[in-house]
Design a binder for these strands. Structure first.
Lengths: 195, 195
DNA sequence: CCAATATGTTCAAACGATTGTTTTAATCTA
DNA sequence: TAGATTAAAACAATCGTTTGAACATATTGG
């Protein structure tokens, strides 16, 4: 991104789309927040959808990068790596999980065009780690692999979605997030481990 | 609800709001799906928001009812009861979790006006069950209670959100949902149990 | 080195389409 | 006939996008 206007639009649109959803944000609202003329959105991103897609692309790409480095590790370490990556990515890109979750619940065209292939890739990563763990005898062999994968995704991600709602009861620091991630993955691993 | 037009609107709006989110659905779209005149929405529900609130109210009320009957049980049974209630409510009201999740990610006015007090009540229910379990020695005493509660909510609910995306890989029958819920709560309970 | 041209960007204004809501008249029901 | 309900039309407001002029900066030719 080599232009100031482009960057201002990109930065201003992220929290708006993340907090209100694609349809609930108008391009005039974005332009105002970015202190930029409305037409710049069409000029630089070929419209509202283009801007949204560019944001989604950059955010989901960040997750992919964070997870991909765990390929060779033993099964349990791969799952811990996933958990750590989720918690770290959330401090680096505070809105990424909101975008993903928002698309999961109320999909836009970005789901089919951008997100799906990444999400399936994460899913396969977890599936394989769990299956390898079962095969090598460290995880229970009565597990449904698909369900177990979704369990981990759920336990790792929901916290970051719900957090804003519980900010009165909860410590919301970076350290607290990391502590959550560790306790959650420990509960999960203890729960699937062969006794 | 004592009127046919009212009921048609209500029924038609549920899947639309659930799948696309509040802002992405127009009242003309709803009226068309219900085979009813647009103005009926204002006439019966005092506008789009009124219709949406009525739907949210009825759905979140159903969860509250399902969970409230577990008060006297021992801690572990309370958590199992919560898990079972979540999975059952989802087969009875297939869109309830979409509404809740949608409001969590992209809150509308319904979050403050309707959902918050119910969600906090569920949260207190889980917090207390976990704390009681720690106090009576069946759960690990190094648990962060708040985090543990959110872990359970996450592991129980995410599956039902993600399911539609994985319908090619996953058995999506009622029995499969129940099987998921049972495996998930078992993983969780095994993970927090004192050894 | 300056003037002329070309290119890239910003701006306010306007476009037609669609938004939620209201109005007014027609229709149905009791 | 009185009141409740439906229907079509119109309301102002806002939607995403496009337009064409204004502006800035860089490139070219003499």
């Amino acid at each position: 991104m080599d232009n100031a206007t482009q960057e201002k639009l990109f930065a201003a649109a992220i929290p708006l789309f993340a907090e209100k959803g694609y349809a609930a944000v108008s391009i005039r609202e974005i332009a105002k927040a970015a202190d930029v003329n409305v037409s710049s959105i069409s000029y630089y991103f070929r419209g509202k959808e283009g801007l949204y897609h560019a944001i989604i692309e950059s955010h989901i790409g960040a997750i992919s990068k964070a997870i991909s480095s765990a390929e060779g590790l033993p099964p349990e370490e791969r799952l811990r790596h996933y958990a750590k990556a989720i918690s770290e990515i959330h401090t680096k890109k505070p809105y990424v999980i909101r975008f993903v979750q928002s698309e999961l619940v109320n999909p836009t065209s970005a789901m089919d065009k951008i997100l799906k292939k990444h999400l399936f890739s994460f899913y396969r990563f977890l599936n394989k780690a769990i299956q390898d763990g079962i095969d090598s005898g460290i995880f229970r062999d009565d597990l449904d692999v698909h369900h177990a994968a979704l369990s981990l995704v759920g336990i790792m991600n929901f916290y970051f979605i719900a957090k804003p709602l519980f900010r009165d009861f909860l410590d919301t620091s970076v350290e607290a997030d990391a502590a959550y991630a560790e306790q959650a993955v420990n509960i999960y691993l203890e729960g699937i481990r062969r006794k």
